[in-house]
Design a protein around this nucleic acid. Structure first.
Lengths: 225, 225
DNA sequence: GTGCGCTTCAAACGTATGTTTCAAACAGAC
DNA sequence: GTCTGTTTGAAACATACGTTTGAAGCGCAC
């Protein structure tokens, strides 16, 4: 066979370990022993650890980016001419993520956690890779956001997009841990879909908040000893 | 002198390097050479790398937590009896952070970036340390949030707090980079105080959004090939 | 069978890490 | 000065890492 399943076993193991522990904290030896393949297989099939990281991202980001393009196409077509609303735009993104075909039951949360790590764990090579490979759907999303919030100044919009990104990446990147805590504390089960359903209204409301007040409300002074 | 300035030089260097590169990616040799002290000094004064990480956090978290307690005291006194509003609570937190005496001009953003890393870079020992040492102001903040948002269910509130935390930690943890981007793209200068001033209304609006809709709005279906 | 790609394997390489060691330098008390 | 406890210094230690090597194994055309 052209591609022994070694490649996929490595990708599966790497994906899960990266999501659990981060990139630097995951060694090739952990990956290859989890995948039950020889240590040298990673360098043979991928070339380097960094290239393996790229491959892990590419495996889900490439189909996701295609799905997202379709979702945006359909959305813009349905709105023919008029710019889609903020809610519609956010939902198009969310649904594209949630509806991606999953490799296993943890699929979507691994996906999210990796994206969070990609932003957070400042691996220069990764950021560069993602920007080069997936700039198009990203800027399209930005354009839609801009058209959906014409009332915001560029600066306000810029910062609020960062806030949205942060809330999403952070929550999703630790969604497993957060779900566990919730399960233990309140005895509530939660799916990633439900988290997303809670997140979108939060983001939309924040994005459309009244003008940022640049001065704290009267009487909120804090004494500093 | 009982404490040669070696200790502080190490803490200063470690703080900055951790904030720039994360914990695992910062070696003791980087720290000691930046601090211009001997490699063994870290283990002599702190015992281990993990203990150094704890010390870096304790150095700013301990005074901050005291400042925060004062701010909450004053806030509750001013409101005598009635629970403080969400905005007041968030501002009390924000101002306490912003008004902390700074060691240098980067003070507050290093502070924020480290907090972001603490949550993000899942170092078990760090999370445990922070929970043990600073649980009190944390749970007090949680109680204030609860009283300020009685309309929310526990589950909704839980998730929205995570969203707030994420937006804050993420934004602040990369605030230097984000400020630079903004400077280059739009030619706008920004201070951490201004970022905070934009963040608080965003968070408050998200926190008080209408009930999370658990079903996407009609007509937002996404075709999946 | 023989020969030829591709893949696997055990072992080693070079480097970097956190930590330890132990002698030298130092400060302050007597 | 001399002694004593603390701090610094250069060097080594053990371990872990990513990567490379070269032989062995494999499937398949001829």
């Amino acid at each position: 066979m052209a591609h022994s399943d070694t490649v996929d076993r490595i990708l599966d193991a790497a994906e899960e370990l990266f999501a659990d522990r981060g990139f630097s904290e995951t060694s090739l030896r952990m990956i290859t022993s989890k995948a039950k393949v020889n240590l040298a297989a990673v360098n043979y099939h991928f070339g380097s650890k960094n290239a393996l990281i790229h491959a892990v991202f590419a495996r889900f980001l490439t189909p996701f980016s295609a799905t997202l393009e379709n979702a945006f196409d359909e959305l813009e077509e349905r709105c023919d001419g008029k710019p889609p609303t903020l809610n519609q735009t956010l939902w198009a993104l969310t649904e594209s993520a949630v509806r991606m075909p999953q490799r296993n039951e943890k699929g979507i949360s691994i996906f999210m956690r990796l994206l969070g790590l990609a932003y957070t764990q400042s691996q220069g090579h990764l950021r560069k890779f993602l920007e080069q490979e997936y700039s198009e759907p990203f800027s399209r999303f930005m354009r839609l956001l801009k058209e959906a919030t014409p009332q915001l100044s560029s600066v306000d919009r810029y910062w609020r997009i960062q806030f949205m990104l942060g809330a999403t990446a952070f929550t999703m990147s630790s969604s497993d841990a957060l779900r566990d805590i919730l399960q233990n504390k309140l005895g509530v089960e939660t799916t990633v879909q439900e988290i997303a359903a809670r997140l979108v209204p939060f983001l939309a409301a924040g994005m459309q908040a009244e003008d940022a007040m640049l001065i704290p409300p009267a009487g909120s002074r804090v004494s500093v000893a």
